[in-house]
Design a protein around this nucleic acid. Structure first.
Lengths: 343, 343
DNA sequence: CTGTTAGCGCATTCAA
DNA sequence: TTGAATGCGCTAACAG
């Protein structure tokens, strides 16, 4: 900065004012300073600015796994919005581990980030952030209603949408393949599955709710075992894209004719679902948009549009059902079992 | 820091030494300071540290599009390695635009990042980074041999692998669907396509090299037009996952029987390719690993393992061909055209 | 409208 | 082994 000041024949403060735009600077001086800065390639040190201003333009984004298109889309939406508002994204994968998540929290706190957007794993992380005075937006699932804002899909509505669709097609034994119900996402999807059954006056067969782990291979195995145990199942609803992928691959391996022998539906619309045949009926969460909304909510706090200390906000993103070829009519009772055994 | 110092009954300098590990501090003092810091939730300010140390633990990562699984995998690999080395990733999408790329360069320079990993769009960006004294690693493609290291797939070898595979199956009219050849990636793939033909003594029909834009819909349209114009084509090689997706979708829409009526092969192994039927024969670049190697190369510079001012390094990641159902025998000459018209 | 002064939080001299 | 002093690069009073 001193170099620029000298070259431009002004003081450092004037350079600061000219470049930052805060405070007065005569038009010609301003132009001269900009010219010198550009000429010698001077770029103000963001660390020094953050230190002095006690605020940075960094936002921490903490997700489980960038290789999962759901998280990648979310992050892409966040990044787009942040960038257009002059912020940037520190992206950390926590692999769904509370330990890694907590380490990331430390990092973000150390960086004095302007805020954090997180698909939370443990309450402690969110609480800790909150205690450090960091704005937090919980994305996709909410683990604490008190600490920070949240932008969530309406999981119950989405699951109800797809379950109702299956029920209306005549399915009565609809398996649910799900990995967790302790987070609002899984819990909501289970609730929606139940709600749709209740609304249709169809009883839920608890044995058709299959718990598995968040892993395609495991999900495939679980789905396979379920079909073996219950050949009367006519439809399967996989609670997220990873489980759906595992189940679909397993059914393909088994040579099942979809949707004739079995209908399947999923949650989260990811690219492969419209490329395979039959294409997969699924609930879109508008994930990219969800990410943008997360950034919007955070930016609203930062800009003061919402009071920094105002009550937690909850934004809902409505899901949409995309009906594709993987869901068909339910067969008459009994027929499915024979059909499947036949091969 | 003052608070910790007071509580622990020592000076700020001692707190600094105790916490950072640099310089002396009596064992008991060290423990006491750590205890106090943990109790009051003190976390050293990373901005102040960066300012003072003239070095940050941030690494800029600049890619085209996080929603493309190729870039997402690359970024995930980078992040994993950086994180385990105590660095973090500032991720910016440039959408393939030189303008956005240049803005990101400004941002990274301002942050005094430890280095930048970039899938480059324009030479200027890489040069500018270099001039600002930032270590740069060019990922996937190299746009400047002088400015910074590079970690690249062997595009020529990969394309030759897949083209040879098609030739060996008897195909002689193999279309190439490609978006650009000005970068090392596209240029290499085109070269590999030619090299395989040359090695097999098969002439390249220049009309079968179809240029399109980096966009699935456009690629599908281009592929469609090509097939209409040249019904004698028996195989198509799409130079990346986006083009492959567009082409595959188009062929599905047309109801083509793959691989009987047409064989297709791709570059970049992304999840949908093994889920669709027929599954797609493709060249894997080991993208996640490529990302890790990028981080390794950067970290080697930062750690001094490679001289900071040593000559540019070039690391190659060998590709591998995965043969799947989408590539089959070429039909006897002439038959393909009739076959396709028949439907 | 501009320059001088002071200090953000830290790490590193240098003395003790 | 520790503390006092200094300055990293910047911005915000404040006085002119």
């Amino acid at each position: 900065m001193q170099d620029v000041a000298r070259e431009a024949g002004v003081s450092a403060s004037t350079v600061s004012r000219a470049l930052s735009g805060n405070g007065y600077a005569a038009e010609d001086v301003r132009k001269r300073v900009h010219a010198v800065a550009a000429r010698i390639g001077y770029i103000p040190d963001a660390n020094a600015r953050s230190l002095r201003n006690r605020s940075s333009h960094s936002v921490g984004v903490l997700i489980s796994d960038l290789r999962n298109p759901f998280y990648a889309d979310l992050a892409a939406g966040v990044e787009q919005r942040l960038r257009s508002a002059g912020y940037h994204m520190i992206l950390v994968n926590d692999d769904g581990h509370a330990g890694e998540e907590m380490l990331a929290v430390q990092t973000f706190a150390a960086m004095r980030v302007a805020g954090v957007i997180v698909t939370p794993v443990s309450v402690e992380a969110v609480k800790s952030l909150h205690q450090h005075g960091v704005h937090v937006v919980q994305a996709d699932r909410r683990i604490s209603a008190r600490h920070g804002d949240a932008v969530l899909g309406d999981n119950e509505a989405g699951a109800e949408l797809v379950t109702r669709h299956l029920l209306q097609l005549g399915h009565r034994r609809i398996a649910l393949l799900i990995d967790e119900t302790k987070w609002t996402s899984g819990a909501g999807r289970l609730a929606g599955y139940r709600a749709a059954h209740a609304a249709a006056g169809a009883p839920v067969d608890e044995d058709l709710i299959a718990f598995t782990s968040f892993d395609a291979a495991a999900a495939g195995a679980t789905a396979g075992r379920l079909l073996d145990a219950r050949p009367d199942v006519t439809a399967l609803f996989a609670a997220n894209n990873v489980l759906a992928q595992g189940a679909f691959a397993e059914f393909q391996r088994r040579g099942l004719r979809l949707p004739d022998q079995l209908s399947i539906a999923a949650y989260d619309d990811v690219p492969w679902m419209s490329l395979v045949r039959p294409a997969i009926t699924t609930v879109s969460q508008h994930t990219f948009d969800l990410g943008r909304r997360c950034a919007d909510v955070l930016l609203a706090r930062l800009s003061g549009e919402y009071a920094e200390d105002g009550p937690p906000r909850l934004v809902r993103v409505e899901p949409a059902l995309f009906v594709r070829g993987s869901t068909g009519q339910a067969p008459p009772v009994g027929e499915r079992a024979n059909d499947r055994k036949a091969r």
